[in-house]
């Protein structure tokens, strides 16, 4: 787990995540892994017991995981949301905005560069899942 970047303070789940299908069959698991074609909404009835959701990006250009992440956060999921796979440095900021709070990239990232990209944009135009007030809210107080 050397290359795991976590933006939260709790203990990381230390056992492997199961697929959405196996999770739905054995709902005592607390770590699930979502693939791009999975329906994140299938997890909604079980969110309270889940501590870790991994969302896999087999290729960085497949953006379905961004919607999956937001859908979970919109439904009140507060556990860890980890982007895994082809996660590149320039995707971290939008991922963060969609509610990801952990990253486990296939290729290690330079921690200094990670801090820089996460701090790059001063604000955001639209509300998402990171709780940031959108620019229209800042404008109108």
């Amino acid at each position: 787990m050397a290359d795991l970047i976590r933006l939260r303070d709790d203990e990381a789940v230390d056992h492997p995540a199961v697929t959405v299908d196996s999770f739905l069959e054995q709902p005592d698991a607390n770590a699930v892994r979502i693939e791009p074609g999975d329906d994140a909404r299938a997890l909604l009835p079980h969110l309270a017991q889940i501590a870790l959701v991994e969302i896999n990006f087999p290729v960085f250009g497949d953006g379905r995981g961004y919607s999956a992440a937001r859908i979970l956060r919109e439904a009140g999921y507060v556990g860890e949301l980890r982007a895994v796979g082809d996660v590149l440095i320039d995707q971290l900021a939008p991922m963060r905005r969609c509610g990801f709070d952990a990253f486990e990239p296939d290729r290690p990232l330079d921690p200094v560069a990670v801090d820089a990209v996460l701090a790059r944009f001063p604000a955001a135009y639209q509300p998402a899942a990171d709780g940031a007030a959108p620019i229209w809210a800042l404008r109108h107080g």
Binding site: G61, Y66, C98, A124
Partner: peptide
């Protein structure tokens, strides 16, 4: 324009 600029969910559409 503003809503769609840097929209985090829609940066990697099909």
């Amino acid at each position: 324009r503003q809503w769609s600029s840097f929209h985090p969910e829609f940066s990697y559409l099909p």
